[in-house]
Amino acid sequence: MSQNVPLFARKLLAPFPLYTYPPNTPKRYASCHATLWIYPPLSKDGVLSADVECLKWQAYLALRGVKGLRIRTDVDPQGCLDVRLPSLQAPLDPSTPGTAGDDNLDLHAAHHIPAWADAVLNQSEDALEGYKTESDRDESQAWIALLEGNIHAALMLAQPTSSLLYRIFMFDTTVSRPIESYMAPPLPPRAGLLSLLPPQALAFLGPRIPKDAIESRYRDAIAALSDRLGTDQWFLGSKNPTPLDALLFAYLYCILSLRSDSSIRAEVTRRVNLVAWENRIRSQVIQAFSRSGHDHEKNM
């Protein structure tokens, strides 16, 4: 009852209700495992998400050695924190995973996953983030920018787009960046009469897709990645897996999952070291995950 209600009224109304039943709460699937909410995998029985962002966090957790993780694929991004997948549903007390019931679970946004993993593994934060030296850590930022820039743009280009009818009638539920914004260095501004129009008006014309420029930069980026990886176990020659390895694996897996006649895919398949590396990491990541009860119930 509101504190604004006078005291005598609160006392008068306090005995009500005169009789109460137990609470009416839903019976839900009770999981005592940490569960990662992700976009669905490509295959029905798979555990690796088809979305590069979700897969990155799957690989991150698996490569850090977190065990007994579940995946859940039936939750919409709008149901997640920050309105994007993945989210991690985990026991409130991370030091005792596997003992909590469903009511004792907390939800973490993706950017809280490293802190959660630190707590579960009882590890303190590493200033070098697993890289050998400070310069390696700095170099990793350049590779991350390359992967999340030119390679991401090429991956977007290769993926199917939704139809105009679908875009008209469907709700605009996701915040998506235009493909040209991933390009590094950015594309030159529009020229001619179109340059007079504001960007909002140009949005109706659809994204600017400089296909040749994207593919050219992608080819260079893949060649550079292949050369830098060489025959190392981990990228940049690290002793242990780093967040960059998780990101690289996510992109390689998604590119290799494209249609076999895709030129974007062919660029990777011709580099044996990248394919072998992805294959090795994939088996490692798959072992860390299994489907949650929610997904089993849904598939039944």
Binding site: R28, C80, M170
Partner: peptide, 20 residues
């Protein structure tokens, strides 16, 4: 129908119900 714009304190059940 689209269930969205969840408030930060939304329950897990409503999060599961979100979407089109």
């Amino acid at each position: 129908r689209n269930v969205g714009s969840l408030v930060p304190t939304a329950s897990i059940s409503i999060r599961e119900a979100a979407g089109v």
